[in-house]
Write a protein that binds this DNA or RNA. Structure first.
Length: 484
RNA sequence: GGCGCCGUACCCAAGUGGUAAGGGAGAGGUCUGCAAAACCUUUAUGCCGCGGUUCGAAUCCGCGCGGCGCCUCCA
């Protein structure tokens, strides 16, 4: 079955057919960098990371663009509203660009920890003011936008497809209670392309209209089309950006070019806490940095992949703990396979496991709109069979183990981005740790041989308290690994 | 008020017409000096409720109840 994905634009699953064979242009709305990233960001970017990884696995050459929004959006729909970056700037007594740089680094640090591959291009909004201004000029020239008092607005009545992504109509929007009427605008639903800056506004650029800053939605249109072309394959983002952000992007982009903007719109759902959305404005978020103090980043990634990207994911300590144990279960199998490979030879007992069947089931799950929970279930099924094999066979063949290991690498590591080798590294500290653990376990082996179990148990318990799990295997060997 | 989504075991969570995946937790067992890991057995005759369509529904339709998202910056 070929890859199918759910397209918000058509509200159904569609077979994926890129605009150009073997090439995929993909843009995902990145973070606004005025604070540390939280679990919600984690869910979003892990989800799109898996999508990129899977497209590449299928053989597509993917250009993945994800912006960094380093110019603030206003808090409210009025000129009096303060933008978020400026607010952080004032609170932290730093220049806005310093704030942006600081949290951009923080963002990548967290994403690296989650094993999220970096985008091919991470364009900054402030680095593309020229492109944004050019686009606004084009929209004015084509009659889609108008200037009012130094600001420029998009006239939603001029773009007849407005509402096609979110399923709304301009009429509904104007009847809606929450659309604020602003005198500068011709219609309440019109949105800003360029805003004239107040005298105290720090981030400002010259423009043909008034010195000011770009509107809320124009950066994504300008940057995505600059790097991916006027029409491209996939645009992703959080569900909450479907309207108005993405709706406005379509209007601006298609208004300016007269061409279809994006073929497939993908939206990921929210992380919730007690059933409520985790968000910056609700102040109920857990930052990734805080989560990493409690759980391994791999656990957070696994937790995220245990639910579908279009489903909400309810966060609780209990749920993440459970995910961590599940990941350990998978990891134990993989690590045991790798351990056994060291002493295995050919010929030996061949594993009676249909690896091709498991692989096909895994890929079928991924082909069905990136169903990672289903794909993980396949890995657990595989693990059970592998564990049965390992438990029953004293001398499994090396080639069997290699095939099993290769499958985990292909599916779990390459596609899902999970990692299992957490005990070894090549830093000098890791080498010292390896050496020390070897020494301790060697001594403990002698102690156990003398049946001094109280002492050997004390060593094991103490290491456990330090976060190192020691396991005595049935065959007399002892292994260790870092725990949660 | 408008648009939309969701409600599956103690918890998390797939499944969207063919007779309930997976993980965690719990119970019993095997193995082990013990512990852990692993394996085996077990835990929803039922998927919010009530109707309807169908040979057949958790899955489709209607009504009701409960929860949530968007309409304002937000992954």
């Amino acid at each position: 079955m070929p890859l199918h994905l759910y397209n918000t634009l058509t509200r159904q699953k569609e077979e994926f057919k890129p605009l150009h064979e073997k090439y995929v242009g993909m843009y995902v709305c990145g973070p606004t960098v005025y604070g540390h990233s939280h679990l919600g960001h984690g869910k979003s970017y892990v989800a799109f990371d898996v999508i990129v990884r899977y497209l590449r696995y299928l053989g597509y050459k993917v250009t993945y663009v994800q912006n960094i929004t380093d110019v603030g959006h206003l808090l409210g729909d009025t000129n009096e509203g303060e933008d978020r970056l400026l607010k952080a700037s004032r609170l932290e007594q730093k220049h806005p660009m310093e704030i942006a740089e600081h949290y951009t680094r923080s963002y990548f640090e967290d994403m690296d920890a989650l094993n999220v591959l970096r985008p091919d291009i991470s364009p900054r909004a402030t680095g593309h003011i020229v492109e944004q201004i050019e686009m606004v000029k084009e929209l004015i020239a084509k009659g889609f936008a108008y200037e009012a008092n130094g600001s420029v607005y998009f006239d939603v009545h001029k773009f007849h497809d407005y509402g096609k992504l979110s399923g709304r109509t301009v009429g509904e929007l104007e009847a809606g209670a929450r659309v604020e009427v602003k005198s500068e605008k011709r219609h309440p639903a019109d949105f800003a392309l360029w805003k004239k800056a107040d005298p105290e506004h720090i981030m400002r650029w010259p423009s043909p209209w008034a010195e000011g800053f770009p509107g809320w939605h124009i950066e994504c249109s300008a940057m995505s089309m600059k790097y991916l072309g006027e029409s491209f394959d996939i645009h992703g983002g959080g569900l909450e950006n479907q309207f108005p952000h993405h709706e406005c992007e379509i209007a601006q982009s298609e208004g300016a070019t007269g061409k279809p903007f994006v073929k497939y719109w993908l939206h990921n759902n929210m992380v919730t806490v007690d059933g409520q959305k985790m968000g910056k404005s609700l102040n109920n978020f857990t930052t990734l940095k805080d989560a990493f103090k409690k759980w391994k980043p791999e656990t957070i990634r696994f937790f995220i992949l245990q639910s579908h990207y279009r489903s909400t994911l309810d966060f609780s300590d209990e749920a993440v703990d459970a995910a961590g144990k599940g990941l350990d279960k998978l990891g134990n199998t993989v690590r045991t396979v790798r351990e056994r490979m060291k002493s295995a030879t050919d010929p030996g007992t061949t594993a009676p496991i249909d690896l091709a069947r498991h692989k096909a089931a895994f890929l079928a799950a991924m082909d069905d709109d990136f169903n990672t929970p289903q794909a993980l279930a396949v890995l657990f099924d595989l693990s059970r069979e592998v564990n049965q094999f390992l438990a029953a066979e004293a001398s499994p063949s090396l080639s069997s183990l290699q095939h099993i290991d290769a499958l985990y690498r292909e599916l779990a590591e390459t596609i899902l981005g999970l990692t299992f080798d957490d005990t070894r590294g090549d830093s000098s500290d890791a080498l010292i740790l390896d050496g020390l653990m070897g020494l301790i376990l060697d001594l403990r082996k002698d102690i156990r041989a003398q049946k001094m179990y109280a002492l050997s148990d004390k060593i094991r318990d103490t290491l456990k308290a330090m976060g190192i799990v020691v396991e005595d295997k049935k065959d007399g060997t002892t292994t260790w690994r870092k725990g949660q």
